[in-house]
Amino acid sequence: MSKGFFALVLCAQTVVGQKFAAFDAAVSSSVYSSKSFAAELAVAESSGYWCSVGHHAPGDVVSWTGEFNSRRQISGVQLRWSYAPAEVKVLTSADGGNFEEAAAWRRIARAEPSFEETVMFARPVAAKAVMVLMRGPKPWGYFGLAHAAALSGSASFMLVSGAPSREEQCAVAGPKGLRAEACLGAMVAGEGKEIFSLSEDGQLKTQGGQCLGLRSGGLVFRTCAAGQGAWEVTADGQVKQGGVCLMLSGERVEAVDCGEAAALGSDKFFQVAVTAQDPAAVVAVQSMGSLLKASVERQRKLMARLQALLPRLASCKSSSLKGLSPRVEFSLAAAGQSASGVNLGQKIGERFGPGVGEANSVLLESAKVLKTVAAAAR
Rank of each mutant, 00 (worst) to 15 (best):
A26Y: 02
A25T: 10
V15A: 10
K19Q: 14
A21E: 13
Y32F: 09
C51E: 12
G66R: 03
S33M: 01
Q18A: 13
S36R: 13
A57F: 13
S34F: 03
A44Q: 14
E67Y: 10
Y49F: 15
D24F: 05
G66F: 07
F68M: 08
Q13K: 10
A57P: 06
E45P: 10
W64D: 06
V62G: 06
F23I: 02
S28I: 00
A44W: 01
E45T: 12
T65Y: 06
A38Q: 05
K19N: 11
V53S: 14
S36W: 11
W50R: 02
A25G: 12
T14S: 12
V43L: 07
A57V: 10
S46F: 11
S33H: 10
V15I: 04
G66M: 02
V61Q: 09
V62Y: 08
A42Q: 10
S63K: 05
T65C: 07
V62W: 04
K35T: 11
A44K: 15
G54M: 03
G48L: 02
E67Q: 15
S30R: 04
S33P: 02
V15S: 12
A57N: 09
Q13V: 14
A44N: 13
E40P: 02
S52G: 08
V61C: 08
D60H: 12
E40W: 06
S34R: 11
C51M: 13
G48I: 00
V31F: 00
W64A: 07
F20H: 10
V43S: 09
D60L: 03
S34M: 05
A25W: 09
V61W: 07
S28V: 00
F20T: 08
A26I: 00
H55G: 07
S28D: 02
F37P: 00
S28W: 02
S47N: 14
F68H: 04
S28L: 04
S28K: 01
S36P: 01
S47Y: 09
S29I: 01
S29C: 05
F37E: 02
A12E: 12
P58D: 14
G17L: 00
A42I: 05
G59S: 14
V15P: 10
L41F: 14
V15G: 11
V16W: 15
H55Q: 13
V53Y: 11
T14F: 05
S47C: 01
Y49N: 11
S36N: 13
V61P: 07
S63V: 09
A39V: 07
K35E: 13
Q18L: 13
G17N: 02
T65V: 15
V61K: 08
T65A: 03
A38M: 00
V53G: 08
E40G: 07
A26E: 02
G54E: 03
D60C: 03
A42Y: 11
E45M: 11
E67L: 10
G59A: 15
D24A: 08
Q18C: 05
S33N: 15
F37I: 00
Y49W: 12
A22V: 08
G54Q: 02
A26T: 01
S34T: 12
T14K: 13
A39I: 00
A21M: 08
T65K: 04
S46C: 09
A25M: 01
V53L: 11
E40L: 04
W64E: 05
S29T: 15
S52I: 06
T14D: 11
E67F: 04
T14R: 13
A42T: 09
F20I: 08
A12I: 13
S33D: 15
K35D: 13
A44L: 12
A22W: 03
Q18I: 14
